[in-house]
């Protein structure tokens, strides 16, 4: 399954859309900061929401290395299997 079709990507796209004022189609290579105008404080709130959506622990230290939508999806996949 390609990333763009994965369930995680679909679910994350919906969450990201709710958190950004920018109206562009969400693609894996988009930069969460520069393209979606989600700053580091908003990113922390997004992380709390993702924790609830997936019933996982998502330490904020993990968030600091995330730049693209794809890296966010990969982080969630990794944390789901911890």
């Amino acid at each position: 399954m390609t990333l763009a079709n994965s369930d995680t990507f679909e679910k994350i796209s919906a969450i990201l859309k709710a958190h950004t004022a920018v109206t562009v189609p969400i693609t894996p290579d988009l930069l969460i900061g520069a393209d979606l105008a989600i700053d580091s404080v908003q990113m922390f709130d997004l992380v709390m929401e993702i924790e609830d959506a997936y019933d996982i622990s998502f330490p904020i230290e993990e968030a600091s290395g995330i730049d693209t939508v794809q890296s966010l999806v990969e982080a969630i996949e990794r944390l789901k299997n911890v």
Binding site: F44, V47, M48, E51, S57, P59, I60, E61, E62
Partner: peptide, 8 residues
């Protein structure tokens, strides 16, 4: 070196 989790 601990991991940090925020709560509401």
């Amino acid at each position: 070196d601990a991991e940090t989790i925020r709560f509401r």
